[in-house]
Design a protein around this nucleic acid. Structure first.
Lengths: 215, 215
DNA sequence: ATATCAGTTATTGTATACAAGATGTTTGAC
DNA sequence: GTCAAACATCTTGTATACAATAACTGATAT
């Protein structure tokens, strides 16, 4: 899958925004970006249109495009949507995931536990993402999988702070085991419920989440 | 909410593709489009990037961009995802929809019934969309609502053929009533299940759906 | 007759030039 | 000293010019 220049720039900028490289309201100056990427304004502008269309940035005609980081309310909404997407993946995966997929899943869960034991947070985040991605794939619905991956990517930076505040990562591990068990037993409703509860941001954590936005 | 020229062009093209104005594989010629929209190639190219990034079209470097209509498999996946999104909206709406929202919903349902009685299919489609959109809004999650609206829009042309093949629209009406009842009783699980079943393309209808793709 | 290669044409990708509007600054009046 | 208006500057939006590569055509050789 080849990409054209403008699209590579768009992806790079997208990741920069997602990883917190820009704050809300920052203007994406065309000439500055053109210099940074060593191209003319034309491909930069094409890339900016992509960011605007996906809601990452907002364009004010004749004024410029400005990055649009989600506020606390939108963030909650995105987490809630993620929870429902994960629940959907779990529901479908319960009856569709292959034996090989289940094998992968238990392995990924072991890696999570190992990272947790080693207090290696970065590693835990990576393994945790993989765990969930296996479930997305297990749903055997590439469109839904793509949606889930996209939102997971969009929420990555915020999920880290959420997990940090969560305190006991052990709880997260216990939930993983419940999820695996439900999938092994092909219990769609239980898998969906477990995943929904695992991802959703509880109301009690809401204020902590908001506080974490001042980074 | 102001839009810039390139974005208006992108939206127009998007709707054109969604409404079947282009067939799969059609090339979107820059100069032709530039003439049609009475602009230079620059804004056209910016619009095309938007289409490509949202998956509506595929770009082959130095060759051009080509519209990418979903095939039968992807279409099934999109319907399945839509079913899950609707279920999620129903689940959340069950406890969040306002009295005014329920009022709107029953009214919209009445309009559906009226259109059905008058054998006015176009009107039924419109009222049916409105019925579902009220539920999206009732979920009180604007991010999820936007996702649902987007997919609903993307599937509009195909849902029409699906409903036609369904034969008895009466069944659709009965399902609506079940949905309304679940929402009135704040029964999240029942609302979710009813909506999921209402939207999902049953396996028995699969071949009919595939056959309908030759339009 | 078919296949291959060279030359031509056409189309995309990028850069630059120009037009239009917004921001900022300076000057002047009160 | 403050406010306002005109001017200058900067930025975006659009068009056009140029460069690079792919498609096409035709001719030649086998």
């Amino acid at each position: 899958m080849e990409l054209t220049r403008a699209h590579k720039i768009a992806e790079t900028l997208e990741q920069l925004v997602f990883s917190g490289g820009y704050k809300d309201g920052d203007r994406l100056d065309e000439v500055t970006l053109a210099e940074q990427f060593c191209v003319s304004r034309t491909p930069i502008r094409e890339a900016l249109q992509v960011l605007v269309s996906s809601g990452i940035a907002r364009q004010i005609p004749r004024r410029g495009v400005f990055v649009r980081q989600p506020g606390p309310v939108e963030l909650m909404e995105m987490f809630e949507t993620m929870a429902e997407l994960e629940a959907a993946c779990g529901r479908l995966a319960a009856t569709r995931i292959t034996e090989a997929g289940l094998q992968e899943l238990t392995e990924a869960n072991s890696h999570c536990r190992a990272a947790l034991g080693a207090k290696d947070h970065a590693q835990y985040y990576a393994e945790n993402e993989r765990f969930h991605q296996i479930i997305y794939r297990g749903a055997s619905n590439s469109y839904l999988e793509k949606q889930a991956l996209h939102l997971q990517n969009k929420l990555r930076a915020f999920r880290k702070t959420q997990l940090r505040f969560r305190g006991r990562l052990d709880q997260s591990m216990a939930e993983h085991c419940e999820i695996v068990d439900a999938l092994q037993n092909a219990d769609a409703d239980r898998a969906a419920a477990a995943l929904r509860g695992h991802v959703v941001v509880q109301g009690e954590k809401f204020h902590q989440l908001i506080a974490s936005l001042n980074r």
